[in-house]
Design a protein around this nucleic acid. Structure first.
Length: 282
DNA sequence: ACCCTCACCTGCACGC
DNA sequence: TGCGTGCAGGTGAGGG
């Protein structure tokens, strides 16, 4: 569901709410979302674990357990929210929210709850040293807001693919952090057609796209979240907005904010792409 | 190696 | 009202 900016906010919210807490017990009500271990060992390994750090790699959330120096049971709980996953924190006297699948009983009389309407979310508990060796993690492109996502890297990546730009931007092994909304938004900011082949982009326009990717992600992080639906902030409340910030996403037929031409919707790889046919040249 | 399609789920909006 | 269809922010398996 969420793209990098939303995951970043979930991570920040989790830090505020659960950092330093101990997990007294865990309940796994949907074993299907658990990869790499049985619900029984998941519960056993989590019992008594202290939440020492919360971070992220791309759209993966990394919850570090017992990671303080000298700890023998240094583990990471890897969580991917996919489409509709969310964390909520509720008191023991409050009812559990709809679609709750995992419940972590914390040592401060609250429960951290993982909810997921569509059940696409995934969770995995593993030793910290095994994390970097996980193929899905290993394959991820550099963090888009770090120095590692350099212009040289981007140009090289573009040159290696004949796919159209929109699809390349969604490929987390090439460009990390964009999803269906921000891929369209980044291409609009750069003034480049989503239908253009990646390896046909000039260096000058690649520079604009590289900057647009960073700008759109940073802007969304700074805005809190540009998600239209409510999104749990891990504190039992919600942030997010019912307003649309998006310049092109879900605006087919509406006038372009730059030139007034009608925004178009096309389908690429089975997913909607929105763009301005006048501002975004091939 | 690359790239495409589909499967995984539930809910909602829409047209008939 | 009820039913069928298409669509929804993401991956990852499998196949050409």
């Amino acid at each position: 569901m969420p793209e990098l900016p939303e995951v970043e906010h979930v991570v920040r919210a989790l830090r505020r709410v659960v950092l330093g807490r101990r997990i007294m017990a865990a309940e796994m009500k949907l074993p299907r979302l658990l990869a790499g271990s049985s619900p029984a060992s998941f519960k056993r390994k989590l019992r008594g674990a202290r939440i020492d750090d919360v971070g992220r790699r791309g759209k993966y959330i990394l919850i570090g357990l017992n990671s303080k120096p000298g700890s023998a049971t240094d583990q990471v709980l890897l969580v991917h929210l996919r489409m509709t996953g969310k964390f909520l924190c509720v008191g023991t006297d409050e009812p559990l929210p709809p679609y709750h699948h995992v419940v972590f009983y914390l040592d401060d009389d609250r429960r951290l709850v993982f909810c997921d309407m569509r059940q696409f979310g995934r969770m995995r508990l593993l030793a910290r040293k095994a994390l970097a060796k996980l193929p899905q993690i290993q394959a991820l492109a550099p963090e888009p807001l770090s120095e590692d996502f350099s212009f040289d890297y981007f140009v090289e990546t573009l040159s290696q693919s004949r796919r159209c730009l929109k699809q390349l931007l969604l490929d987390q092994t090439r460009v990390l952090g964009l999803g269906n909304i921000y891929a369209s938004e980044a291409l609009f900011l750069a003034g480049i057609s989503p239908l253009k082949a990646a390896n046909s982009l000039s260096k000058k326009r690649a520079l604009r796209l590289h900057q647009a990717i960073r700008d759109i992600l940073q802007e969304a992080i700074d805005a809190g979240s540009t998600l239209r639906i409510d999104f749990g902030d891990g504190n039992g409340s919600y942030f997010g907005t019912t307003e649309r910030f998006w310049r092109v996403y879900e605006r087919q037929g509406e006038p372009c904010v730059n030139c007034g031409a009608a925004i178009r919707r096309v389908v690429q790889g089975g997913r909607s792409t929105y763009f301005c046919p006048r501002c975004q040249r091939r």
